[in-house]
Write a protein that binds this DNA or RNA. Structure first.
Length: 665
RNA sequence: GCCGACCUAGCUCAAUUGGCAGAGCAGCGGUUUUGUAAACCGCAGGUUCCGGGUUCGAUUCCCGGGGUCGGCUCCA
């Protein structure tokens, strides 16, 4: 039988073989084109992925769509200037699936304004005026935009014209800058554009948002309008359908409808109550997680939720991470300060240090489903995907330097196998390097980053660099995956840490009887249970596979006379360890089937006098309108037992069908 | 935290210019025993997010706080 991994096209890693089982791809660095905008979307929740992914320059293959989006942004800006004569302009680049433009306007935009702006845009498109390119000398450009009070453009020209060119493709070339104009609207812009406004395809303005000038929160905040544009109507419709699909899968909505979780204002925002249904999912996930970790030589432990201030001084958390920590709790009349743990690493270090370790005992893999609390700013909270209290499936591997590469490889194996079980596909790898706010010397960082690069290099894995995206104590490798509708999610993370072992003086005894510094690898597979499960809800659109489902079978007697048989069947299924709902209501069968469908029971067994006589069941699968009659009960049990054991994806799991939008990017 | 919008029953939403707060679904009580996605009748359900203010009177207008949503910034 085909395994899930095979179905998803992943092969477990073995040495000397590509992780992806395909053609060899040279390790390479692919710099994300726009600093923070790039990393942002990669870490963010799905809605944001759709709304604004990486700003990117035209790559080969998508220049046409780039020009289209960029041109639509210009036309929108022109329309805004007509409607708001005092408007000042920020940046207006193409993004994933569309474009935006930032404006400084005399008043706040309302949704009604979008309609008016769209109308103006349509006029300009209809007028079919050309886009004209023109170079200006820097002084001319400064004068031109200065006279028009375009402060942000002036600032940008000064930046382009002043400093040396750096890496910026927009830099002033020989003291000149590039502009484009259409319909009397002139913008500083490198292009390319479509030839005429009439070439702009069907578009729609989507939303208004605040955004800081140059993405810096110390700068003034501008008003951003997001829009989307496509070569033809069908592609626009498909994209809008996709947005609807995303809305339909919203875990916050499903969470309420299916009684999965709740976040209660009085209890505290950002704190998740796992309701009984979702608690079953979590229980199954945790049980499986423990099983595979025991199988792979992990030692599972428990560590406290609060800790004395001194450990966080030593770890550097208070210094570098204090803004995110809850506390202090003042004990013993304020003489002792305790903080709520934001990470599990210090506790695991203490577990490791509970005795002296020989090199023979390494690697030691300490794991814990560790609950942590971190203060997150109000505006960033988002359902289960961004919360203030969460449980990490955390593990710290203590090993020698020589063992580190191999351990990282093992974490890769585990992570890929693990993610494939859930039907996540197309893994991609990111290497995040040292952040500005960090511990330790540059030499240590050089060494740690090199180790990760080497690990990736040995495995011939193509990866991208996220400059400055590391944690304060270590660089990291992220594995990201795609869900049922093609959105990218954070999968597993591996960090190689040389800082904390130094701070805590973590050592082992080598074969010469000397103390030697241990290497510490941090890793998570789920990340946090909250975020992972929130993602699963959307990935499955609420239709969980049998092994995780809260209601695996609904038993529905046709009428009261069949109730004893229904009870018998329910009891026998429960004896096999299945989660069964026995429907004892009187009334319309159709209604009871509907309710079972709405509860997302994987299977509905309708039994009447015929089935009772034959010892059979009538099987209806979730999401289906057909029933299969006269199935022998034992055969049904065998079928679902197998389905549970193989952790099969459900039949109503919608695999991702590539849409027009994906093809473009 | 910042910009903007929003907050009415468990959920989804109503309530003319400021004038007694209402419906569907869910819940509860009856009736109905029905062969695969919505049977019928009734009952109950509210500090209109919280606190101030204006007013004869505030769900409605103003101020402050909280929360949510779309983004920004940040992040597991």
């Amino acid at each position: 039988m085909e395994t899930t991994a095979e179905r998803c096209g992943w092969a477990p890693y073995s040495p000397n073989e590509s992780l992806f089982g395909g053609t060899r791809v040279e390790p390479r660095e692919q710099r994300l084109s726009s600093r923070k905008a790039g990393t942002k979307a990669l870490f963010s929740c799905p809605r944001e992925n759709v709304m604004a992914r990486t700003e990117r320059k035209a790559d080969h293959g998508d220049e046409a769509i780039y020009a289209l989006r960029h041109s639509a942004a210009h036309v929108m800006a022109g329309a805004v200037l007509e409607l708001f004569p005092g408007a000042k302009f920020g940046f207006g680049p193409p993004v994933q699936d569309g474009f935006y433009y930032d404006f400084d306007l005399p008043r706040a935009l309302t949704p009604d304004d979008l309609g008016k702006i769209e109308e103006k845009m349509r006029e300009v498109v209809k007028a079919d005026t050309p886009f004209e390119h023109r170079d200006m000398s820097v002084p001319d450009a400064l004068k031109f935009f200065g006279e028009r009070k375009q402060d942000y453009k002036v600032e940008q020209i000064q930046k382009l014209g002043g400093a040396d060119s750096e890496d910026d493709a927009d830099s002033a070339d020989g003291g000149r800058v590039s502009t484009y104009q259409h319909n009397g609207f002139v913008d500083l812009c490198k292009g390319p554009h479509v030839e005429r406004t009439g070439k702009i395809g069907p578009f729609k303005l989507l939303s208004i948002a605040g955004a800081y000038w140059r993405g810096n929160e110390r700068n003034p905040q501008l008003q951003r309008i997001y829009g989307t544009v496509w070569p033809d109507q069908k592609q626009l419709d498909d994209y809008l359908k996709r947005l609807q699909e995303i809305e339909r899968r919203d875990h916050r909505v499903l969470g309420r409808e299916l009684e999965l979780f709740r976040i209660d204002e009085e209890l505290g925002s950002g704190l998740v109550l796992w309701l009984p249904n979702l608690s079953i999912v979590r229980e199954e996930l945790e049980a499986w997680w423990r099983k595979i970790h025991h199988e792979r030589g992990y030692t599972l432990v428990y560590t406290p939720h609060i800790a004395h201030e001194k450990i966080y001084i030593r770890s550097g958390h208070l210094e570098k991470y204090g803004d995110n920590m809850y506390g202090p709790l003042l004990l013993d009349e304020g003489t002792q300060k305790f903080w709520i743990k934001p990470m599990n690493c210090p506790g695991h270090i203490k577990v490791f240090q509970s005795k002296v370790h020989s090199y023979r005992e390494l690697p030691m893999r300490i794991g814990e489903l560790g609950t942590v609390y971190r203060y997150e700013r109000g505006g960033t909270l988002h359902g289960m995907l961004r919360v203030r209290g969460f449980t990490q499936d955390d593990s710290h591997i203590f090993c020698t330097w020589d063992q580190a590469q191999d351990e990282i490889g093992k974490v890769f194996d585990l992570a890929l196998e693990f993610l494939s079980v859930f039907g996540y596909t197309e893994p991609s790898i990111y290497l995040s390097t040292r952040p500005e706010k960090r511990l330790g010397s540059d030499e240590l960082w050089d060494k740690a980053e090199a180790a990760l690069r080497t690990a990736l290099g040995i495995r011939e894995v193509p990866y991208k660099i996220d400059e400055g995206g590391g944690v304060f104590y270590a660089p990291k490798i992220d594995i990201k995956v795609h869900d049922a509708i093609g959105r990218e999610w954070q999968g597993a993370t591996v960090q190689i840490d040389l800082n904390l072992p130094e701070r805590f003086d973590v050592t082992y005894v080598n074969d010469k009887g000397q103390r030697e510094r241990a290497v510490m690898i941090h890793r998570v597979l789920f990340g946090s249970l909250e975020r992972f499960v929130g993602g699963l809800i959307e990935h499955y659109a609420g239709n969980f596979p049998l092994w995780l489902a809260w209601e695996q079978v609904a038993v529905i007697p046709v009428r009261e006379t069949a109730l004893p048989y229904a009870r018998d069947i329910a009891a026998r299924l429960r004896a096999e360890g299945f989660r069964v709902h026995l429907d004892q209501q009187a009334g319309d069968l159709r209604n009871r089937v509907k309710e079972a469908q709405q509860r997302r029971a994987n299977y509905m067994l309708v039994v009447g006098d015929k089935e009772a006589a034959a010892g059979s069941v009538s099987v209806r699968r979730r999401g289906s309108r057909d029933e299969e009659r006269g199935v022998a009960f034992d055969a049904f049990v065998e079928r679902i037992t197998k389905e549970r054991e193989t952790k099969a994806l459900p039949a109503d799991f919608a695999p991702h069908e590539p849409s027009a939008g994906d093809a473009m990017t």
